[in-house]
Design a protein around this nucleic acid. Structure first.
Lengths: 192, 192, 192, 192
DNA sequence: TCGTAACCGAGACGGTACGTCGTGTCTTCAG
DNA sequence: CTGAAGACACGACGTACCGTCTCGGTTACGA
């Protein structure tokens, strides 16, 4: 049942998302203020607060709306092929500076704002783990999964390396490293 | 050659470091303000600004001064033993909530303040990588090092998993996972 | 053409003016801080800085708004009657401790802040001289004005005595002295 | 009986007085800080606080030390001659910008610091009134004094006009105005 | 077609913290 | 003991954003 009243302005929504992405790319999270987003988008602050709980939620929205953050997990037939596909898709995404800037901002904000931290953990980080989980379950069903790095540890390793490079070393993700990781995790030819 | 003028007050320095650690434990980085540190330490704000470039530098100082952050790397005779020692020391440290709170704050601030980010990267993160590097060099000299995960990737994996759990999942570091990691990286008996 | 946005709060404005007057009466100009005004008025500091260039401008506003600083110059029929009315009104105002406290603060601030000094001189001091000037012009037109103390000097004498007592001797203005001044300036019966 | 220890440095004293005069001339009272005086004089702040209760006392000291502030009151033979001498000496002094700058600073500080205000009133302002008082007493003894402006009012008029021009209009004192004042106060030929 | 309700931009509001400046006191070392 | 140097606790400064709250004005549905 459509309520009365003016409709939400799609134009303002787009302007806000774009402004947020631009600002985070230009100045980092430190220079990202609600006032600056509103000013650049030509929008009142209230319009932002009306639709998003925090500026990080704006970014999260922008990330899922603009970039195709979604990493599909098609069945490639084997654990190795599945994992390779997942890693390459993930590492490719992690080479886009615009995406990386947003990821940094999201993780930073989740440390400052516990409520957002929970949303981010449940709605984003866990979703990525689940995607990898699907793949690992499939491998387990096939009996392909090595016993020793438990699925949880595999996820910790894969996402750990991504976030560590994004936040700590700030070096772009390297596809060659994805292959190293693949070899390590599938146990193929790793003897001295 | 001692300069003239009053000496720096060691008492104030200690009070500031302690206050910073307490506040970050109580309220997280979000509640850590220079004013609050100064108030709790019974100190003027200027005394903090005089000696530390930012509040995160205070924490970094407190971390290295109070907690024995230093992870020594004695030669245990083999790569596996060396790495086990390193991982256990690291994971143990990463189970101390006071240390973890500070680590979160440091990484958060390094995203907000690029200048501190550089200091943190060079003075802390790289130092930890170097410690692991000593160990890996020793193993390479002995010919014990598996070919495939390059030393850089080993470091990314080890520190990646630590930081990912500290920042993202917020689950305490698990010694059993250290053993998993050890098995994986030394290539010992990991077939299904 | 009304601009968009929330209107200025008249309630805040009144609270600020009142707080400023109270504080200057209680503690003098030395104890008058923008922070104290804001705190007492239950107002953010920014609200003060938004509307007044300095704390003295708040006081000046309060003086003209609250106290009836205005000294009317009705035509009393003769120079002597006009001047008596002017002097009595001025001296009466100068006996109100609340007014005197503010005057002291304004003159003090005008020495500290040259920009305010100019505003004060043009917008307040000159206005008072002009009021006296009207009266003197009228007397001149009637041919009542003694030749020797030029109008400018008459003004210097009248306002000089007021400010000197306010700032230097800190003695309340004395109506009897107004009569002395009147006799002197109108040249009535002043021989030995 | 000479106390033990190092003697007070006359060189430092002179440097402080000179620095204070220079600063007040360059920046007015607003830019006159103890730190700036100490820095320019090449002196520790403590040396200033040791010998003067406030920065205004430094200026007061400098004024009486450097400029010959003293207005002598020789007996010129008649009230008119005495008063003319006094007024011309006073107005001449009040035409020196360096003196005027200091006077402004002293009066300003006396509004901010009640203790200095009292010192200034008793030690400086009253001294000037007393000088004029000597002259008026002499005239009274001779029977030359007009009845109507009482001696106190004469003083209020004379010093009022000086301070009013120094603080309020900021116009230099005018010798012609001294003559006007003289004519007015001695009652000589002032009919229309 | 006319409320009425939700939207919009703008921007003022009460707050909190920022980083800086000056105060007057204190501590250190040199003369 | 004085003097230069400078660190100290303190308090106010003026600014930047926060998240909230009016404003006047604009859609757009339902009576």
């Amino acid at each position: 049942m459509p309520r009365p009243g003016r409709k939400r302005s799609e134009q303002s929504r787009q302007a806000i998302l774009t402004a947020a992405l631009e600002l985070v790319a230009e100045t980092g999270y430190g220079g990202l203020t609600v006032e600056a987003i509103a000013a650049r988008a030509g929008v009142g602050k209230q319009t932002i607060y009306r639709w998003w709980p925090s500026k990080a939620d704006v970014l999260l929205d922008a990330l899922t709306a603009k970039a195709s953050t979604f990493v599909p997990v098609p069945d490639e037939g084997s654990y190795a092929a599945d994992l390779r596909a997942f890693l390459l898709a993930t590492f490719t995404l992690g080479r886009d500076p615009r995406v990386v800037d947003v990821l940094r901002a999201l993780m930073t904000h989740s440390q400052l704002d516990p409520a957002f931290g929970e949303r981010f953990r449940v709605g984003f980080l866990q979703a990525r783990r689940d995607a990898l989980g699907v793949l690992l379950d499939r491998a387990a069903a096939r009996g392909e999964l090595p016993a020793t790095p438990s699925p949880g540890t595999v996820a910790d390793i894969v996402f750990g390396i991504v976030w560590y490079r994004v936040l700590a070393t700030r070096q772009p993700l390297d596809p060659a490293q994805a292959e190293e990781l693949l070899a390590l995790l599938t146990g193929s030819t790793s003897s001295p």
